[in-house]
Every structure is written in structure tokens, then in C-alpha cells.
Design a protein around this nucleic acid. Structure first.
Lengths: 279, 279
DNA sequence: GCAAATTTGTTCGTATGTATT
DNA sequence: CAATACATACGAACAAATTTG
């Protein structure tokens, strides 16, 4: 037994999925049927399926069956905003709405949840404030084509509001102009650049339920620190993206226009063929 | 039974790890011991441990036991090379060696493996060549402090060598000056910019063995397309990084010098305490 | 170098619970 | 309520890797 049986079964099923014999959304044979087909016990079949789940190829629905996962058409975010001026454009909100629309997809975002809180050590470090000091945070959920896409929280130093100069930061509503533009007008702080710190990790329980992803999947976590004229951090934005539906682009120097049209050149999508009914 | 038993067991062990009762590198009780402690069957214990493996908190070694994973100190790569000029600096090789040294860590790389091959559809698309056309590829393995860090393959159009102008591309050895500089001298093609395309996926079997990572872990895959004066792609570099030991930075506009010194502000590392003997 | 002991890996069988149709 | 399908849990046996005597 060079390879354990559940590896062989998983590999056989993986082949069927990758060759297209089993299309996205299609139902796999039930565990009982697979048990007969491969002449293995139900537990062994389940071990094989667990492997496929780990690879993100299938998902199980209690009472229904096992299904090939629908690959979500990935959304591409450009991290280097306006490369000509090298200048960070508006806030993330504005950039998000326009970038999504450009790709002919429907953006949506929740109204901000505003909180006064003590940020994590990582955020405090980037904002260059002492651990334990309070900040203003604005949190939003973002959707594309009604699919949960990202969770974003931006942290601002408390002085912005205690000084009375930027009261709108506490308003739990969208700022049409964007918070970055607002801060320039209100306080005179201009964001002259930013740094993105890109990491990957497993999702916490909140993220699991919001994105509907398994506990051992991966999310990107991007810390964006915005700097003002004095090279001082004026805000830190933490955005969490599920890795299965997000990609990123970084442009440096002179590059031609992006080609968003090269979405996954897949094996072939011959027929859309609506395979199953949604609940 | 609100929560299944193996969830509760996993959560209890997770708590011990995160509180520091079980330090990185420490061995967990054996399955038999855990079976007695939690009064569950061995299979249930194993389900709990599988969960912890999925979260990347522990690893099992057949014949030895289960151990808390050693977090590898992540290495940070800056994707925007020289932000002042907005110009892509030398080749990746040069940039890699200097960037790693700056962080006081020891870089190493294999001698390049040169091949003539038909690239994947993704690479062909980015190089703007027809599918099925051959290209020159140069492949390298990179290490930091003797740990496998990345796998990199760069693809160049075949004309570069068939024209006889850039024969060094076929030499299976390091180019001290960097291939980007060499191409400028040899063919007159200057890289005036590049675009990075950042994605995440599960590793293939090669990557699993080289990086020693499980089949359901995550790797970053970054496609870097370099453009010449004519806005034409002159090379495509594909680099694969395990997500557990790599992070990335993108600088836009004016930003202060990076602070590499803010490595994970962990719960506390009170005592190093060498827990176990290496083989 | 070999054999025994230890520990995890694989596979089976069985029973019962929970979600969906 | 019944049937179907996946989820959890137990027990058992043997295999494979590693360490120890």
C-alpha cells in the first residue's frame, strides 16, 4: 500500500473535478454510493472527502450531499492607487466603489459602525500611539454582487475628534467625499502616501460566519498606514479579504493599462448549465 | 450537546497553547494520555488534533508525538522596489540578496535551472505570446537562514536567445549583475516598470515537499510582469511563497522608512528554554 | 545491528444524532 | 412523520515510523 486508500480515492475524485467530469455545483455520489464504487468503508470515504474539503474542492451540506465548490470569480484590487502621481487617491471607500464598478460588478457596503476603543497592539504600533490609548474606529462590511467580500476597520487618533475639528468622524454614516478628503478639509492633514502590509492567516469566528468560509481557510489581512505631510501616521486601515475570492495588483513604474479581462483561463466553461436549485 | 466533544477538546488545547501553557516546540500528551484525560475515544482525540493541525497550531510526527508548531519569524518583502524613482530596480535576485541581508538574515539561493519549455496559459497571456510557443525559463530555489523560502521561475521570450543577442540567458549560473541589467546591455531593453499580481492557493506536491508544508496549507503566488520602453512585456517572474513565513509591503507616495523591527508583538516570550533535542 | 516498546496512521464495523427533503 | 444524507462517537485491529534497550 504505497498510498493509503483514502488518498487514492481523493485523488481520483480530484481528477474528475479538475477534468470537468464533475462540474462546479454538481453533486458527488453519496457516501453510500462511493462506498460501493470504491469498495471501502464509509469512514474511509469520509476521510477522502475531508481531504477534498481541505483543498477547497468540495463542500458538504448535511441532509443534502457533497457538492463541487463554485469557484467565485475573483475580484482584483489594485493596491497602488494612482501610479502617475504616486499619490494615494481618496479613501478606501471611494476607491472601492469606483474600482468595483469599473469591473462591471455591483458593489455594496454597510453603513459604518463607529466605536471608541483600545486598538490591538499591531494597530497601536503602526499609529505610533502607546498601548492602551483609545482611538476612533470606523468599521464596514463590503459586498460585491451580494457576496461578502471584505471587512474593513479604520482607526484614527483620538485628537481628531477631541480637538473638535473633525466631528464627522463620529457620524455613523457614509462620507460621500471620503474620510481622507474630509480630514484634509477639516484638519488640514493631507495623506501624502501610505504603506500596505500584506499578511495571511486563518479567519476568526466572526470572519468565518460573515464570509461563510471554513475555520481552516485563509484570509488576507492588509494593514494600510496613511502618512501625512509630516511623515506621521494619520490613520490605519485593516482590511480582511477571503483568499478564495480576492487577488491584488501592484504597479511600479510605467506599466500599460491593466487587463482585467484575463480572468482565470480555466479548462473550459462550455455550458453554464444551472445544476442545482438555490435555497 | 451544543458543541461536539472534539471541538471542546480542541478548544481546550488551543487555549493552553495560546495562553502559553504549552510553548512552541513542546510535546502534547500522547493520544492515549489525552484519551484518559478527556474520557473520550482515541478517534475523538484524533479528530480534535486534526482540527488543531488545520489551524496550524500543532504538527504530528509519526512515532514521536504531537508538537506545538514553531512559528517561523516571517520575512518581509517590499514589492515596490525604489519608491523614489518609481523605477524597478535590478532583477529579483539582486533585490532579494540585499533585502535579506538588510534584515540581518542569511540568504542563499540555488544555481539556476535553465529550461526551454512551453509555459502555462497564465504566463503566456502575460508575456503576450500565443499558447504553445516556447520560452526560456530560469528557475531558482531560495533560502533564508537555511529554511526554504521561495521558488522562483522567470520566463523570457525565445527571441532573446534565438537572435543571438542574449546568450547568457541560457547559462545555468548566477548573473552577478542581474538578468534585468544584462538584458539592457545585451538587447537594449530597459525595464521601465512592472506589475505584480498577487494570489493565494494550495501548494502542489513539489511545493509541499520543498517547503515541508501540509497539502491544505496556503502559498502566495506572485506573477511579476516586467515592461520595457515600448510597454511590451519583457519577462514574467512567478514566485511561490509559503504564507506561514512571508509577508509583503507596498509603499505608495511618500512614506517614512520601513520599520522591520516590529516583528509580531507576541503574547510574551519569557524564556527561550530549549524544549526538545533536534534530530 | 536487532528487537521491543512507544506513538501516530489507516481501515474497518457499528450506533446514534442532526439537518434537509 | 418518514426517508435520506452527512456528523459525531465508540471500539478494535493492524501498519508504519521512531526511539530505546
Amino acid at each position: 500500500m504505497a498510498q493509503p486508500m483514502y488518498h487514492l480515492i481523493a485523488d481520483d475524485l480530484r481528477g474528475q473535478i479538475e477534468r470537468g467530469d464533475l462540474r462546479p455545483g454538481a453533486q458527488l455520489p453519496t457516501e453510500l454510493e462511493l462506498r460501493e464504487k470504491y469498495e471501502a468503508s464509509r469512514n474511509t470515504i469520509r476521510d477522502a472527502i475531508k481531504r477534498l474539503i481541505g483543498l477547497g474542492l468540495v463542500e458538504t451540506r448535511p441532509g443534502q450531499g457533497t457538492f463541487v465548490t463554485q469557484k467565485i470569480d475573483p475580484f482584483v484590487t489594485t493596491l497602488t492607487g494612482d501610479q502617475k502621481s504616486g499619490r494615494a487617491s481618496g479613501g478606501e471607500g471611494i476607491a472601492y466603489l469606483s474600482e468595483v464598478s469599473e469591473q462591471h460588478r455591483k458593489p455594496a457596503e454597510s453603513t459604518p459602525r463607529v466605536e471608541i476603543q483600545v486598538p490591538s497592539a499591531e494597530v497601536a504600533l503602526r499609529l505610533r500611539i502607546s498601548p492602551g490609548v483609545q482611538v476612533v474606529s470606523r468599521h464596514q462590511q463590503r459586498f460585491i454582487d451580494d457576496i461578502p467580500w471584505s471587512l474593513q476597520t479604520t482607526y484614527y487618533p483620538m485628537e481628531f475628534v477631541t480637538s473638535g475639528k473633525a466631528p464627522m468622524l463620529l457620524m455613523a454614516e457614509d462620507m460621500a467625499e471620503g474620510t481622507v478628503q474630509y480630514l484634509k478639509k477639516a484638519i488640514g492633514l493631507e495623506q501624502v502616501g501610505y504603506r500596505d502590509w500584506i499578511t495571511a492567516r486563518t479567519p476568526d469566528s466572526n470572519e468565518q460566519t460573515f464570509f461563510r468560509i471554513p475555520h481552516d481557510s485563509t484570509v488576507f489581512e492588509i494593514f494600510r498606514t496613511g502618512f501625512d505631510q509630516n511623515e506621521t501616521p494619520m490613520r490605519v486601515t485593516v482590511t480582511v479579504f477571503p483568499a478564495d475570492r480576492n487577488q491584488f495588483i501592484v504597479n511600479v513604474g510605467n506599466v500599460p493599462d491593466p487587463q482585467y479581462d484575463l480572468s482565470q483561463s480555466e479548462p473550459e466553461t462550455t455550458e453554464p448549465e444551472t445544476t442545482e436549485a438555490e435555497k
